[in-house]
Simulated scan of single mutants.
Amino acid sequence: MAGILFSSVILTLSLSVVTSAPALVPSLNDNGVILVPTDNGYYLRIDIGGTGREETVEKIAPEKLQVRGSYGQPFPGSQYLLVTYEAGPNGYVAKYSLSEIQTPVQHLPPSVLKTAAG
C-alpha cells in the first residue's frame, strides 16, 4: 500500500509541475527513480523494492494531458499485480491482471550430479 501512496504522490507532484511551469520537469536519476523531460511532457520510471511504475505524460493541448503507464507489485503467495492505465480528455481507464510469479528452475551441472551419485 505504501508503494501506491508513493506513486500517487509522485504523479500528483509531477502533474502540478507539468500544468504550471513552462520547463515541464527536471531530469532525475536517483535511487530507482528516473524522470526524463520530453518536448511536451515527461517519462517516469520507479523501481523500488520489487515494485515498479512506468509512465509517459504528454501535454496534448493547453490544460490537457494524456497519461499512459503501468504499475506492478508483488503480492503474498507468489502473485504479481500488474495495472495498466490511461487517462486523458476521454477519462480514465485501468486494466489489471494478477498472475503467478514464475521462479526459475535451477539445473545442477552434470559434475555435481555425478558426485552426488557416488
Rank of each mutant, 00 (worst) to 15 (best):
V25W: 00
Q102F: 05
N31M: 12
S8R: 12
F6K: 15
G3A: 15
G41A: 00
V17Y: 09
P89Q: 05
Y71L: 08
S97I: 12
L82Y: 02
V83G: 01
S7K: 05
G49S: 14
P109T: 04
Q106P: 06
M1G: 15
T56Q: 10
A87R: 01
L82W: 00
A117K: 03
G91F: 01
L81M: 07
V57G: 09
Q102Y: 06
N31P: 05
I34R: 04
K59D: 11
S7I: 05
Y92I: 15
T38A: 09
N31Y: 10
E86N: 07
N40M: 07
L44E: 10
L82D: 07
G118W: 03
Y96H: 14
G52Q: 04
F75D: 14
Q79I: 05
G32D: 08
V17A: 11
I10S: 12
Q79W: 13
G50V: 06
S7F: 08
S70D: 15
E100D: 12
G72P: 10
Q79M: 14
L108H: 10
L98K: 10
V33T: 06
T38E: 15
N90T: 11
L13H: 09
Q79G: 11
Q106M: 09
Y43A: 05
I48Y: 04
I10N: 10
I34D: 06
K95W: 13
V25N: 00
V83R: 01
S78C: 14
T38P: 13
E100T: 13
A116W: 15
A23F: 10
I10A: 13
Y43D: 10
N31K: 11
S78M: 15
V105S: 08
V36C: 05
G52D: 12
P110T: 00
H107E: 09
N40Y: 07
P26E: 02
E100P: 08
S7M: 10
L5F: 07
E100W: 14
S78T: 12
L82C: 01
G32P: 00
G77P: 02
P76T: 05
L11A: 14
N40H: 08
D30R: 09
A87H: 02
V105N: 06
D30G: 05
S7R: 05
P37H: 02
L5P: 04
P26N: 04
Y71I: 07
T12Y: 15
L15Y: 11
G49P: 00
L82K: 00
G41W: 00
L35D: 01
Q106H: 11
P37G: 00
D47H: 02
A116V: 14
T12G: 15
I48E: 09
G49E: 13
Y96T: 13
M1D: 13
S14Y: 08
L28F: 04
S7N: 12
G77N: 04
Q102W: 06
G50F: 02
A61N: 03
L24P: 00
